[in-house]
Nucleic acid binder design. Structure first.
Lengths: 230, 230
DNA sequence: TTAGTTTGCGTTAATTATACGCAAATGTAG
DNA sequence: CTACATTTGCGTATAATTAACGCAAACTAA
């Protein structure tokens, strides 16, 4: 009886960015064997002496140079034992957010090409990465409604209409602008700045900041962030 | 440079049971080396050709003989690379529910002793199992509020007061009995049976059943189960 | 028969969500 | 300079939901 465990462990990252009223995900183009190229999620094998989350950070750094604003474990994919045809590989997937507004990504050492891909234009990906991505999107959607992670997709200072559009596009729902604003403002976790939007159409709009410290304080007192829609 | 990955992968199970108005978790007593004994969560290494969830089922079957009514992946613990002092082991934890009301557990092949342990009397466990258990409890609490998994801890037919007590004890909150009943009944996912409780005190109470099929139908139509408390 | 207990069904007030109205502050076209 | 299109910011009325209780019914035990 063969008792030696022969299973490899990898991490994969789903990095979301929001830009021009669209949700994007970071993909890399990888070479398999001599000819085949595939788009895939950034990721790779875990090293013996690094933690899982360090492995994600390292892989992302090797392949891109994004600055994460949020990262969380998503799920571990290991029920399909043939998900990688070469070896049995179990993948611990993490999803992360970045402020994509002023970000230049370049392929670092490992990957040939790195690209932001619109969420509704995802090609066939390597392995079970389409499945992983689907799960990440679904998690992002629900998390958006009960934790203030939307701010991690926006610049430090943002317009209310940006926040509103972010929610509309990611959740694929219509929201009443006025009720949304009222709701968010009632949480008392935003700060008004003195600055105004550079956009020159319509009434000038104030820029807002998310006050994370205040949010943490309120949370400790029992406050619970929640956005719902009809 | 050493490139060979030398990481083992295990699964652990947190099995919850509810009995006599208390939440319990299944623990096993394991021997380490020659003398040390420790209470631990059931679990073990994943075999090369079994899926993760199969590994959980197998380990549980080897160590106990419980009948699961619900099982879901909880989290993968691999950030502390010394969580097992002997080797680097990454553990994919699953949590599960059983109807503990008419259940006899016996130690099967592997474990010396198997025991239900009250959730507020948990001893120091092996490895990082106390941490894992904490996370499972927290997940159980939140899941209870937005999915009808409470029924998986109860017998097929149950009293309303049982359901109410289950929520009270697990969530550690007071609930208004009448509002709770109204809320649950308004979901229209319960079936009244003709039977009555065998308990001979106070007004006889009807037994109810959870209609899972109806719940699924409603869910597809956009229904969302949710229980909140002040 | 009375007291004790738990169930099952209601009512009311407070809070929250939904659906809008509308003026203010800009740029732009004429 | 004026009228218009556009977006922001604030408000209000109504519907829906939640929270807080009252109380009779149906049993057991004494």
């Amino acid at each position: 009886m063969e008792n030696l465990q022969n299973i490899r462990i990898a991490v994969d990252a789903i990095v979301f960015g929001y830009k021009n009223n669209d949700l994007y995900v970071l993909l890399i183009e990888q070479q398999f064997g001599t000819s085949e190229k595939y788009w895939a999620l950034p990721g790779g094998l875990v090293q013996n002496s690094e933690s899982l989350s360090d492995a994600v950070i390292r892989e992302l750094h090797e392949e891109t140079n994004v600055q994460l604003t949020f990262m969380e474990q998503l799920y571990t994919f290991g029920d399909d034992i043939y998900r990688d045809s070469r070896n049995r590989v179990i993948s611990v997937a993490y999803y992360a957010l970045v402020d994509a507004s002023n970000l230049d990504i370049k392929a670092n050492t490992d990957a040939e090409r790195v690209q932001w891909c619109k969420i509704d234009e995802i090609p066939a990906l390597a392995f079970d990465h389409n499945l992983i991505l689907e799960k990440a999107i679904s998690r992002l959607k629900s998390k958006l409604t009960y934790e203030p992670i939307g701010f991690d997709l926006l610049p430090e200072e943002f317009l209310f209409s940006d926040l509103e559009n972010l929610y509309c596009t990611i959740l694929e729902k219509e929201i009443d602008r006025r009720n949304f604003r009222k709701k968010i403002l009632s949480f008392d976790i935003l700060e008004e700045t003195e600055k105004f939007s550079p956009i020159k159409t319509g009434r000038p709009a104030k820029l807002f900041k998310f006050n994370k410290q205040k949010y943490n304080e309120l949370t400790q007192k029992g406050f619970h962030f929640e956005i719902k829609f009809a």
